Amino acid sequence: TIDEIIKALEQAVKDNKPIQVGNYTVTSADEAEKLAKKLKKEY
Rank of each mutant, 00 (worst) to 15 (best):
T1E: 10
T1H: 09
T1I: 08
T1W: 15
T1L: 10
T1P: 07
I2T: 03
I2C: 14
I2R: 04
I2N: 03
I2A: 04
I2F: 12
D3E: 14
D3P: 09
D3Q: 13
D3A: 13
E4L: 10
E4G: 05
E4N: 08
E4A: 10
I5K: 01
I5Q: 02
I5Y: 04
I5D: 00
I5M: 08
I5F: 04
I6V: 05
K7T: 06
K7A: 13
K7C: 08
A8M: 14
A8T: 06
A8S: 07
L9W: 02
L9N: 01
E10K: 07
E10Y: 15
Q11N: 07
Q11V: 05
Q11I: 05
Q11T: 06
A12W: 15
A12I: 09
A12H: 04
V13M: 14
V13I: 14
V13P: 02
K14N: 06
K14R: 13
K14F: 14
D15E: 11
D15V: 05
D15P: 01
D15R: 04
N16I: 03
N16M: 07
K17P: 02
K17E: 04
K17Q: 08
P18H: 05
P18I: 07
P18W: 10
P18N: 03
P18S: 10
P18A: 09
I19E: 01
I19N: 01
I19G: 04
I19M: 09
I19S: 02
I19D: 01
Q20C: 14
Q20W: 06
Q20A: 08
V21Y: 08
V21A: 03
G22C: 15
G22W: 13
G22N: 06
G22E: 05
N23C: 15
N23I: 12
N23W: 08
N23T: 09
N23G: 15
Y24K: 03
Y24H: 06
Y24A: 04
Y24N: 03
T25R: 09
T25Y: 15
V26M: 03
V26W: 07
T27H: 12
T27D: 11
T27E: 11
T27F: 14
S28N: 14
S28T: 13
A29R: 06
A29L: 06
D30C: 12
D30V: 12
D30M: 11
D30P: 04
D30L: 10
D30H: 09
E31A: 04
E31W: 03
A32G: 03
A32D: 00
A32R: 00
A32W: 04
A32K: 03
E33L: 15
E33A: 14
K34V: 11
K34P: 01
K34Y: 12
K34S: 11
L35K: 00
L35D: 00
L35W: 07
L35R: 00
L35T: 00
L35M: 05
A36Y: 15
A36R: 10
A36K: 04
A36Q: 05
K37V: 09
K37W: 06
K37M: 14
K37A: 14
K37S: 11
K38F: 14
K38V: 06
K38S: 06
K38N: 03
K38G: 03
K38T: 07
L39N: 01
L39C: 07
L39I: 05
L39K: 01
L39E: 00
K40A: 10
K40Q: 11
K40V: 08
K40L: 13
K40S: 09
K41A: 14
K41D: 11
K41L: 14
K41H: 12
E42W: 15
E42R: 14
E42S: 09
E42Q: 14
Y43C: 13
Y43R: 12
Y43D: 03
